[in-house]
């Protein structure tokens, strides 16, 4: 593998993950449960947007890619496009995704492939994201009866979107099976400490869960893109 041009499919997959999750987190602005979380969620959203811009720019024009592609051309995981739900859903989504992203970027940073440089920078940011999600999983899981129940429901609801993370992506030189083992171990450990059990449902199999990398998304994603893209598309060719 060369160290020059990033493989397009992989850069789009990782870039779209970051772009879409950043957007979802941006929807929290002004709605967070406590002022510290306004700052924290925006921080994570900004880190992800920064990663997205670097990755998309290696493939083409960042704004054309973000604003002018149709839904079917996006390569992000279905997990990251899921609506925010309550705070527990947002935290479960963060826990699942940032654990994956942290394990993935740590591997990429340690290798000599085309993503090594970018991953070395991003892995430091993602370590904070993962820590943030873990701390909140512990607080909510092992907080009150209500928060335990909400966190349990959120972890269950999003579980079926987690298998997709370990499908091989063209151009990403990682051992997906080892990545999945590490992810399951890490998530299992956090959930246990949070007094939650590991969800039992399937993590993949149904066509609805696991095809984001091929451009098959869930219904809420189309509405998210409609909102995100409408202003840009309303003024074709304009600069902002």
């Amino acid at each position: 593998m060369t160290t020059t041009a990033l493989p397009t499919a992989a850069a789009l997959a990782l870039g779209d993950d970051a772009l879409v999750l950043s957007h979802r987190l941006g929807e929290w602005a002004g709605h967070a449960p406590v002022l510290e979380e306004e700052v924290a969620l925006a921080n994570i959203a900004l880190d992800l947007l920064g990663q997205a811009r670097v990755l998309l720019s290696t493939v083409g024009d960042e704004d054309e890619l973000a604003y002018l592609r149709e839904e079917r051309a996006f390569r992000n995981l279905q997990l990251v496009e899921q609506p925010n739900g309550d705070f527990a859903h947002t935290i479960a989504r963060q826990l699942y995704f940032s654990t994956y992203q942290h394990l993935l970027y740590a591997r990429l940073a340690g290798g000599d492939g085309p993503f090594a440089g970018l991953a070395a920078k991003a892995v430091k940011e993602v370590a904070y994201h993962r820590d943030h999600a873990e701390q909140w999983t512990l607080r909510l899981g092992d907080g009150t009866e209500l928060s335990h129940e909400r966190m349990r429901r959120a972890c269950d609801a999003l579980w079926r979107f987690t298998g997709e993370m370990f499908r091989p992506v063209e151009g990403l030189d990682v051992d997906s099976e080892a990545l999945e083992r590490d992810w399951l171990e890490s998530i299992g450990e956090v959930l246990r400490r949070a007094t939650l059990s590991v969800p039992e449902g399937p993590r993949s199999g149904a066509w609805t869960a696991g095809a984001g990398r091929e451009g098959l998304h869930t219904e809420p994603f189309g509405r998210m893109l409609a909102e995100m893209q409408h202003l840009h598309r309303s003024h074709p060719g304009a600069s902002w």
């Binding site: 602005a29 002022l35 700052v39 925006a42 947007l49 920064g50 704004d63 604003y67 202003l231 840009h232």
Partner: peptide, 24 residues
Amino acid sequence: ITRAPSLRRKAILMAKVQDEAGHG
């Protein structure tokens, strides 16, 4: 934030709104 017309403007706006939470 969710309708910002370019990614650069979106980053600037998110950072600004975050600063306001920090000022609070």
